[in-house]
C-alpha cells in the first residue's frame, strides 16, 4: 500500500520534521522500513507503533491494546517478531522493520502466508490479521513449531477476538508443509 503522499516527505536524505512542532526534543534516527531506508526525527516517547501509524501512515500495523497484551501490532524488527507498541523508536536507530505492507512482493504478489490466510478463511474482521500474519511468518522462520499444539502455543501472543484460531493454525500448517516442515 502506498504511503500517504502528504507524508511522503518523511523519506529522502534530509531528516524530516515529524508531525507538528510539539516535540522539540527530537532525535535523528535511521530505520529501514520495508526495505526503504528512512531518516527520521522522533520524540523519545514515540513508540514504533505510533511512528508507523501516526507519522508514516503505515496503518496496516494495528493498535489493539497498546500494552503488549494482544499482538495486533506485531512487526518484524531485525527479523524478529515483536510488539511495536512496546518499542520506543528512538532506541532502534539503525534497525530494519518489516510490516504487513512489506510482506507482499513489489508486483503485489501476496506472501504465501497471506495467500494461506485467505484460502483458510483465517480471519473475519481483519483487525488482528496483519499481526497474526507477521507473527506467523516469524514462527515459520524460527522453525520451532511443527505440531498443532506447538503452533497454537507459539501463536498465542496474537489474540483473535473473532475466534479464527483453527483456521489460522490450518493456514500456518499449510505454509509449513509447503516449506518442507521448516526444521530448525
Amino acid at each position: 500500500m502506498p504511503d500517504n503522499p502528504a507524508r511522503a516527505a518523511t523519506g529522502g536524505p534530509a531528516p524530516a520534521r515529524l508531525g507538528p512542532a510539539t516535540s522539540p526534543q527530537t532525535v535523528a534516527i535511521e530505520l529501514t522500513i520495508n526495505g526503504r531506508p528512512r531518516r527520521l526525527a522522533v520524540a523519545p516517547w514515540t513508540t514504533l507503533l505510533d511512528l508507523l501509524r501516526e507519522e508514516l501512515d503505515l496503518t496496516g500495523t494495528k493498535k489493539g491494546c497498546d500494552h503488549g497484551q494482544c499482538g495486533s501490532c506485531t512487526v518484524l524488527l531485525d527479523g524478529q517478531r515483536i510488539n511495536a507498541c512496546l518499542v520506543l523508536a528512538v532506541m532502534k536507530d539503525g534497525s530494519a522493520v518489516t510490516t504487513v505492507e512489506g510482506l507482499s512482493g513489489p508486483d503485489g504478489a501476496l506472501h504465501p502466508m497471506q495467500e494461506a490466510f485467505i484460502e483458510h478463511d483465517a480471519f473475519q474482521c481483519g483487525y488482528c490479521t496483519p499481526g497474526q500474519i507477521c507473527s506467523a511468518v516469524a514462527l515459520v522462520e524460527e522453525g520451532r513449531a511443527r505440531a498443532p499444539d506447538e503452533i497454537r502455543e507459539l501463536m498465542s501472543g496474537n489474540i483473535c477476538r473473532c475466534g479464527a484460531y483453527p483456521n489460522i493454525v490450518a493456514a500456518i500448517q499449510q505454509v509449513l508443509a509447503s516449506n518442507g516442515g521448516a526444521g530448525r
Binding site: 503488549g68 515483536i82 510488539n83 507473527s135 514462527l139
Partner: peptide, 9 residues
C-alpha cells in the same frame, strides 16, 4: 511466560 513477541524484546 508471555509470548514469543514479548520474549524477543
Amino acid at each position: 511466560g508471555a509470548t514469543p513477541q514479548l520474549r524477543n524484546a
